[in-house]
Design a protein around this nucleic acid. Structure first.
Lengths: 167, 167
DNA sequence: AAAAATATGTCAGCCTTGTTGACTTAGTTT
DNA sequence: AAACTAAGTCAACAAGGCTGACATATTTTT
């Protein structure tokens, strides 16, 4: 049974007076949610999840990555990775090749099938970004890039910079 | 046993040649991850998760929201909400008050304790955004706001616009 | 050569946060 | 009185995280 007598509660909304940047906080939340929703729909048909997407993405961005490197980028545990990686290998999206220098290592590469899926997943996200950039004027592209990078912990900039730039 | 003979695999990295906007795609991923990591650390101590954060956030932003409204904003099911909402109520962060117009409804309000936690969670996120804006020059604030809004599905703009603006 | 360290894989079990479907209760509308 | 609506609840399930412990192959150090 719910109380009918009002307990001590707050009726005034939290606003920018109380905490700055609330507008960007919630825009960031909504933007990211919709940004991930597009690939989620494609993944669903394949019975994959967001975890598969991230793994496949980075293997495509840096073919030959080892398991340890991937764990560092994703910041998850070996066991969490193992499951999704196994599925990507079993479905022929990714292959492991014994490291030529160090035979303990497993270099991870996309197959043509895996590359194709990565591109398919990137397409709607690229479209969304392109459209958003058009709406604000393409000249502001670098503002967006700088802002997003500034939102990342400097300790991780090295990871971003290690990914291949435009060919 | 892993194969020593290389299967058909792709060694070239996926770059902007293949899919546009890859740089922003990954910056967005890293930025959002670090953005959510700050409050996650605070939540952990309270044995709350990101789900509690989102619920608490919106109840603070729009006190008096009904359960149905909250479900629409969060886009989760009633059962998913029920669990975290119950915990927030049990720990005296949120109270439910029988709707004055329609007694079937439960209006959701933060308690002082709930307001305090919401502010505590917003603080590091605000700091991160403020710092990022300073790095790009504060004049570009509206560019960021417009970009992020353009990244959201127009169907959801109404939800964003319904939240209280600066007091 | 032996010992230690490293890279990966694997087993078993757990938690959170999401899901669906079915049903109840209370209150409102027709 | 009947139908609809808002919310709560029960049971069962899944994805994707986690920990700890241990196995195997390989490389590095002593």
């Amino acid at each position: 049974m719910k109380s009918y007598t009002p307990e001590r509660h707050i009726e005034t909304a939290l606003t920018q007076k109380d905490a700055s940047q609330l507008d960007i906080i919630e825009l960031f939340f909504f933007a990211y949610r919709d940004f991930t929703a597009d690939p989620d729909m494609i993944l669903e048909k394949l019975e994959f999840g967001r975890a598969h997407h991230r793994v496949l993405y980075f293997i495509n961005r840096k073919p030959g990555m080892t398991v340890a490197e991937l764990l560092e980028v994703l910041q998850i545990t070996k066991q969490s990775l193992a499951r999704v990686l196994k599925q990507l290998i079993d479905t022929d999206h990714v292959v492991q090749i014994t490291g030529p220098r160090d035979r303990r290592q497993r270099e991870l590469y996309p197959t043509p099938k895996g590359r194709e899926l990565a591109l398919e997943l990137a397409a709607p996200q690229s479209r969304r970004i392109t459209s958003a950039l058009e709406q604000i004027g393409d000249s502001d592209r670098s503002v967006i890039e700088h802002f997003l990078k500034a939102m990342v912990n400097p300790a991780q900039w090295q990871q971003i910079d290690s990914l291949p730039k435009a060919g």
